[in-house]
């Protein structure tokens, strides 16, 4: 469902963030994207949702050529991908419910459907009782969960997470990771960028390792 073919990304500054990346993900797969900070993990994720365009190479997602996607098609691409951001990207002027409902409102769903789906997503991440709270009153871990609820509420086929456990202690990290595993079990393709090697090694999953913009090792899980 997701294919990178000889993808390179060179920034105008001349820095080559990614060079010659090729890999493929099947629908329903779970993969870690690892590497030091600056290895190109974030760039790779940005390429998938067309926040950045590759300098060369080709990216296919659900049969669509992402590197040549028209500007007007980008929103529809992003609706198929749930993204959990390291800095959460929550809106602090609206409550938890409104934050999670945003993708559905953008998608133009019926209010009754929005209500049902937001409640389901919030109870899945264990925040059913917080829907009227404002993000600022929540802990870092809870904010991360709101971000996850928002990422999955639109039932994406692909879930991307950029350092979702970055600032959390090991127990909380494990809880968050379990959440991603649960989504994967019901069929969502999941890619998690992390430098938390200890956590990655606990789970026997495919690992895509980046080193200074190059693919170093890809452990396939069958």
């Amino acid at each position: 469902m997701l294919t990178f073919d000889q993808v390179s990304k060179r920034y105008p500054s001349g820095k080559e963030a990614l060079s010659g990346i090729s890999f493929a993900m099947q629908a329903g797969e779970f993969a870690f994207l690892t590497g030091h900070s600056g290895a190109g993990k974030s760039t790779l994720m940005k390429l998938i949702i067309a926040m950045e365009r590759p300098s060369t190479g080709q990216i296919l997602f659900n049969g669509e050529n992402v590197n040549r996607i028209a500007h007007s098609r980008v929103p529809y691409l992003r609706r198929q991908v749930g993204v959990v951001f390291q800095n959460h990207q929550l809106l602090f002027d609206r409550n938890v419910y409104a934050n999670v409902a945003l993708p559905l409102e953008i998608g133009g769903h019926r209010p009754s459907e929005i209500r049902g789906r937001v409640r389901a997503a919030l109870s899945k991440v264990g925040l059913a009782d917080r829907e009227n709270h404002f993000p600022i009153t929540l802990s870092g871990g809870e904010q991360q969960r709101v971000g996850i609820a928002r990422a999955v509420v639109n039932r994406p086929s692909l879930l991307l997470a950029d350092e979702p456990t970055g600032n959390l202690d090991p127990d909380l990290s494990r809880d968050i990771m379990d959440l991603f595993l649960q989504f994967n079990q019901v069929g969502v393709t999941v890619v998690i960028a992390t430098h938390d090697i200890a956590l990655v090694e606990q789970l026997d999953k495919r690992r895509i390792e980046l080193d200074q913009g190059r693919l170093r090792e890809s452990k396939w899980q069958t």
Partner: peptide, 19 residues
Amino acid sequence: MANLTPSGASISRQSLADR
């Protein structure tokens, strides 16, 4: 939780009237 079951690549389609 049934609500959260992903529909894979097929995004829930809406009719024109709905849109």
